[in-house]
Simulated scan of single mutants.
Amino acid sequence: MGTQQLNLNPTEQSASGSYRLQVCAVIDETADARSLVFDVPESLRERFRYKPGQFLSFRVPCAGKLLTRCYSMASSPVCDARPKVTIKRVDGGRVSNWMNQQVQVGDWLEVLPPAGHFHLDERQADNERPLVLFGGGSGITPVFSILKSSLQTSARPIKLIYANRDEASVIFRDELRQLAKANPERLEVVHILDSVQGFLTDAQVRQLVRGHSAGDYFICGPGPFMDTVESTLLALGEAAVRIHVERFVSPPDPDEVLAQEALARAAAADSACEALIVELDGQRHEIACRPGDTLLQSCKAAGLEVPFSCEEGFCGACMCTIQEGETQLARNDVLSAKELAEGWTLACQSRPTGARVRLKFPD
């Protein structure tokens, strides 16, 4: 595995949808986690504008394959000049170990534009609800972006509950200490160490959120950690709409993606869609749909500039709602059961299964 050198101008988009960004700083956070800071050319600033809590996806060459991995930005668009992702090494992780061991200042990486729905609603930045953040291990990354941004853009009280294996595993320890010292009236940071208190329990969650009811909750970390926090908050009667959970999975290798794509296309090949109606930016378009094509493929073929990024079903950039008709979703690593029930789908993974389908992209 090595840094791929492309014969592209940094402002040009590659065939895989990525752009080239240069690493301008490397920060060793802990023994098994480091941050990479990127220089974004002026011509790409708008394309790489992001919201607190979003992530970047990387295309990394490995053994003849182009692997895709997502890493959240620990930087804040409000108070940090450049985007910064933080990567924790995973046992056997091909990309995370390479990022930690090999990438250096000056290297160029293939990066997809920011994506993700785990972020602050900027329209509600001025509300007074408590902001309660739960970070587990490297799950602190998007939570830290949200924390720093909210300190700058609102007067909301903020509480961070941060769980780690031990004290040496605490990422951003010094920065968190400084922020808490600078904002004693607004920010409270609580550390939970497995080596001291054990794994976080529902009883501890109940105690930690006491006095912070009816807040906005953001949760990111290991699966059991997030499940414990989310289920406890729901049991306490907190509104599901204000509980935000970020779940990351590693996308399959390209050959697996191609095999899944072939199966999904074959399954939908007999479905003839006579009318595909797309509502985008307040306008209505009726476009053609070839048998087996995804909603996104049909939109792109018709020249519609719909939102998308990875085209592999894990970033959520192409989320849209099915207003009419039936579709079949091939791969989904993003949408919750609740979102599926509400009619959300992924345009890059969804294919029409009826004669008439109407979809709407968020305004």
Score class of each variant (00 low, 15 high):
49 R>I: 12
32 D>H: 13
29 E>M: 04
83 P>C: 06
35 S>L: 00
28 D>C: 07
86 T>R: 06
58 F>K: 00
50 Y>C: 06
32 D>G: 11
49 R>T: 15
31 A>Q: 14
43 S>M: 14
70 C>D: 07
70 C>Q: 07
28 D>T: 12
23 V>Y: 05
23 V>T: 03
26 V>G: 01
36 L>K: 02
73 M>C: 06
24 C>K: 11
79 C>L: 09
59 R>P: 02
28 D>A: 14
75 S>P: 07
30 T>V: 07
66 L>Q: 10
61 P>L: 01
71 Y>V: 03
28 D>Q: 14
27 I>S: 09
27 I>F: 07
66 L>I: 11
77 P>T: 03
37 V>F: 03
39 D>T: 14
46 E>H: 11
85 V>S: 00
24 C>N: 12
83 P>S: 01
62 C>L: 13
23 V>A: 09
18 S>W: 09
74 A>D: 07
70 C>E: 09
24 C>V: 10
84 K>Q: 14
54 Q>E: 08
46 E>T: 15
61 P>E: 00
87 I>K: 00
64 G>R: 07
88 K>E: 02
19 Y>G: 00
73 M>Y: 05
65 K>E: 15
79 C>M: 10
60 V>E: 07
55 F>L: 04
20 R>W: 13
56 L>A: 01
46 E>A: 11
57 S>H: 03
31 A>S: 15
31 A>N: 10
23 V>N: 06
57 S>Q: 04
53 G>I: 00
35 S>A: 10
85 V>Q: 00
75 S>F: 04
18 S>C: 10
78 V>F: 10
61 P>G: 03
33 A>L: 09
73 M>W: 05
89 R>H: 06
49 R>W: 14
56 L>N: 00
33 A>S: 15
46 E>F: 09
32 D>R: 11
38 F>G: 01
21 L>H: 05
36 L>H: 02
61 P>M: 05
29 E>K: 04
34 R>L: 12
46 E>N: 13
34 R>Y: 03
33 A>R: 10
76 S>N: 05
32 D>W: 08
56 L>R: 01
72 S>M: 04
33 A>P: 08
70 C>N: 09
66 L>F: 05
47 R>M: 14
86 T>I: 01
60 V>K: 04
18 S>A: 11
50 Y>L: 02
51 K>R: 15
32 D>Q: 11
39 D>K: 12
89 R>A: 11
60 V>A: 06
70 C>K: 02
46 E>V: 15
46 E>M: 12
30 T>I: 05
52 P>K: 02
78 V>A: 15
45 R>H: 14
76 S>G: 05
39 D>C: 11
26 V>I: 07
90 V>E: 13
75 S>A: 10
76 S>V: 02
67 L>H: 08
75 S>Q: 06
57 S>P: 05
35 S>P: 03
54 Q>D: 07
33 A>G: 04
76 S>K: 03
70 C>H: 10
48 F>P: 10
42 E>P: 14
43 S>P: 13
